[in-house]
Simulated assay, not measured.
Amino acid sequence: MNTTYARLELLRTTRDFVSMFFVAILPAFFFIIFGAAQDFGDERFGNGNVTMYIMVSMAAYGAVTATTGIGGMAAVERMQGWGRQLGLTPMGDGHYIAIKALVSVAIATVPVALIYALGYFTGADGTWQAWLLSAIVVVAGATLFALWGLAFGLAFRSEAAVSAASGSIVILAFLGNIFFPLSGTLLTFAKLTPLYGYAGLARYPITEGELANQGTGPTEHDALWVPLLNVGVWTLILAVIAVWLVRRSRGRQ
């Protein structure tokens, strides 16, 4: 039962062309435009080059878009009656959540695989450790944002809320130092946003904490604890919000 349901969920998600476009094709396009097509892509940066730095950033953006959407739809499905249908089967809540988590990880690997493949053939260069560790962190860390989508779905109970959650990732990506290097006050604010720590950890095997800039000032550096603390705090915040929203929704029933 669980294997069959996981397969059907995976097929259903991958057949949604609009969702897969925003999850995989759009981030890949961003990588080509902002990374592979730029003359400065071959410049060395830490344990890789600039093209690899941008490759990891765009892969992270795509992976987070995937897990946010799946987390949000999981909440909406449960509240719109799908939970009662599943209650007629031997599948419990734990299995349902586990399957959704598995599907979210599987879908998150799609943009990562596509963008890393494009990077390999368009000049991304780095140590094998940087390639491997960054890919692992991008996929594993993206699961945090299933909680982001879950919170939106539980709070607003509609598919429009899921679209809003996925759309908010674009804003968070700008604020989280993913699309272009920030500095000054914007950088200080960025360190408080949820995507900053995740992206910083994903790029850490390349940068070792060195922050990219636009050549307008001295290079800044983040100790490893900075992105780790950001991820830890946001995981706790989103988990608490999700639990509170689940209890509130049960109270309304």
Rank of each mutant, 00 (worst) to 15 (best):
A165T: 11
I115V: 12
D93G: 05
H95S: 14
W148F: 04
S163H: 03
L102E: 03
G87Q: 14
V112R: 08
I107A: 09
G167M: 00
L154N: 05
I99S: 15
I136T: 00
L114H: 08
G119R: 13
L133H: 00
Q85R: 09
A146F: 04
Q129M: 07
G92N: 15
G119C: 07
G94M: 04
T109L: 15
T122S: 14
G123P: 01
F145R: 07
V105L: 15
D93C: 00
A101V: 10
S104R: 04
V139D: 04
A113F: 10
P111S: 10
A161C: 10
T109P: 07
S104G: 11
T122L: 15
A151M: 09
V137G: 00
G153T: 08
A160E: 10
A140R: 06
A108P: 08
T109C: 13
F121C: 02
L88M: 09
A161G: 12
V137S: 01
Y116A: 01
V137E: 03
W148A: 02
A117M: 04
W148C: 09
A165D: 11
D93F: 09
A130I: 00
A135L: 08
V139Q: 09
T109V: 15
L86Y: 06
A165R: 05
T127A: 01
Y120G: 02
I99R: 14
Y116I: 07
T89V: 14
Y96F: 14
A165G: 06
D125H: 15
A155S: 07
W131Q: 10
D125G: 14
I169V: 14
A113S: 15
L118A: 10
T122G: 03
A130F: 04
L133S: 01
F156I: 02
